[in-house]
Design a binder for these strands. Structure first.
Lengths: 341, 341
DNA sequence: CTGAAAGCGCTAACAT
DNA sequence: ATGTTAGCGCTTTCAG
């Protein structure tokens, strides 16, 4: 690798010192306009690029936020990331993304890398497997701001940006009831993850409010994959008393269920209603289109990033920061709309 | 931010020097096992984390690969990234991802950030807008290895990892002809992007081979979005002599077309066949399921990463590295299978 | 407005 | 097997 141009090279060429070059490049007020102009011009000609490693080592900041998500190829997470990137950019920060595939080992690796590379903050949505938080305790121990979004560590006193998942699920299930469905199954995820426990709670609340008895047989917990949806619906529909609607805590699991139902000649929404969660783009593209709960993912990302910047800018680190909860929004589509019957 | 533990702290505590600590931590052969043990133990107790910024500044390597892709929420790119990450990890490298949303401005930003942070190499799939390559010339000017995958800069003499898109398209269109379709429309992307020009070429070759005349009216170029698919199919089906099949150079544009056709009561594949490209996961989940061309995305990522490591390990930088072309694979699904008619 | 000098935390010759 | 020393490229007091 050829030698890169440094501020020393520029200094030598302009018969000045590195301090002046450094200041000029960063538009410091105490440098004459004439000098700034000369420096900027030469920098351009010589194709100078600041060495962030050196700058950051010196300043003690990496100007980088680390983001940990289970899967980057989900619209929900991709949108959150876009939200984060937008805010980060205006602050001159860059965003480093790391995906865990819901594996706790990969999550540990990500955190470890972030700690070594000295990211200035970690924004994370934990994986399905994550029920132990030592690796995250490390982050706090090293005084790196840690902000959770969507899937959070509740035992922590860190900032969290979440949806009101109880409300989202409540709306979804209430909507199904409004449409005349009587026996609603729940496909959810592991209870140790806040969002799934809350979506279950919303489901329970909605049924309770209408005085409908809970049937534990209709409640399934799985990993929310497409395949899990196929599996669960197959089992559930075999019950003596099968459901006439399914509320799934994720869009992929809902899709698996929906496709199995179609293949087995159930009419949707006439015979059975289906509602998903997260409002992935495909929900709008399949047929019947899938009713789902939108989580304002981009907003969530923006808030998470803003929270980080508020945190590092506040001089009083001891203030108790409230967690933020965003109201989700039910998007009603064909898979649950049988009012006309 | 509290002071982080440094090797100096460890050195002081063990009454030795930073060199010894540094060597012990990196398992240098000239350090006694006893000392290594002491150092490792203390490091663990004190929760020491190497400061990569300092280490990299000193060693002149960042141990980081920068990956630039148009969209992270596409299965194709997500899989390529997974492939890259896998190889990178075995080499002790980390991967930094940056998405451009197909915008050239964002692409420039990404490259600029990567150059500043001194990534050791750049792997890129260029955006739809990218028809000017100054920002990429910069990379080469700074002697940073630059490797293209899928969407490449052809004028460059950099390494490229691509599919044989001509072959992929040829197979797809030949398959449609085999199924008895006569008038096949092409929805492709801008001609200045290699993959779209090649997929068009494959389409032309397949028709030519069967002695079918090309009808320019059946050839559309758009941005390959879902919406573009809707728009294009609507226009194309209004032709006096509409097509009985569509070969789309992307899955999303194919999906837009397919949904519009369904909504307008065309039977697929009976009335009209549809084939997409990239084998996104959803192609398997929609109905009718969508025939598509698999690009061996994960493999492509692995090769791209391997190429990078080969490059930095080879002492003779002047060897001419051949570009790599991977054979795509047609996955036949319901949307094009009407043989039984 | 500009320069001199120290040092961020680590690595790697070059000693011993 | 360990220590000494210099320095990666930059920022930032402190001096002038």
């Amino acid at each position: 690798m050829a030698k890169r141009v440094t501020i020393q090279d520029l200094a030598k060429e302009l018969n000045t010192t590195t301090s002046t070059i450094s200041r000029a490049l960063r538009n410091h007020h105490s440098i004459s306009t004439a000098m700034k102009k000369r420096v900027l011009e030469l920098a351009k000609i010589r194709n100078y690029q600041v060495n962030s490693m050196a700058a950051n080592l010196r300043s003690g900041k990496s100007m980088t936020i680390g983001v940990v998500v289970p899967h980057i190829n989900r619209d929900f997470f991709a949108n959150v990331i876009s939200g984060i990137e937008g805010v980060a950019k205006t602050e001159g920060y860059s965003v480093v993304i790391c995906q865990t595939n819901d594996k706790i080992d990969k999550e540990r690796d990500c955190i470890s890398t972030f700690l070594k590379t000295r990211v200035d903050g970690v924004l994370i949505s934990v994986g399905l497997e994550t029920d132990c938080f030592e690796h995250l305790e490390q982050v706090k121990k090293m005084n790196v701001p840690l902000i959770f979004f969507d899937r959070v560590q509740e035992s922590s006193n860190s900032m969290t940006i979440v949806n009101d998942d109880i409300e989202g699920a409540f709306q979804a299930v209430s909507h199904l009831l409004d449409e005349g469905y009587k026996r609603i199954a729940l496909f959810s995820g592991p209870d140790h993850i806040n969002i799934y426990r809350n979506r279950k709670q919303g489901y329970l609340n909605a049924l309770e409010k209408r005085g409908i008895e809970i049937d534990e047989k209709l409640i399934t917990s799985n990993n929310l994959s497409y395949e899990a949806g196929v599996e669960s619906v197959k089992r559930t529909m075999k019950l003596k008393n099968p459901p006439d609607a399914i509320f799934a805590a994720g869009d992929y699991v809902a899709l698996g269920a929906l496709n199995w139902l179609k293949k087995n000649n159930y009419r949707i929404p006439e015979d059975i209603g289906v509602v998903g969660y997260s409002n992935e783009k495909f929900t709008n593209y399949i047929s019947p289109s899938l009713t789902s709960v939108d989580q304002h993912s981009m907003e969530m990302g923006r808030y998470a990033a803003k929270t980080f910047f508020d945190l590092i800018k506040s001089d009083n680190k001891d203030i108790v920061l409230n967690s933020l909860s965003i109201n989700p929004k039910l998007i009603i589509r064909e898979s649950s709309k049988r009012k006309t019957i």
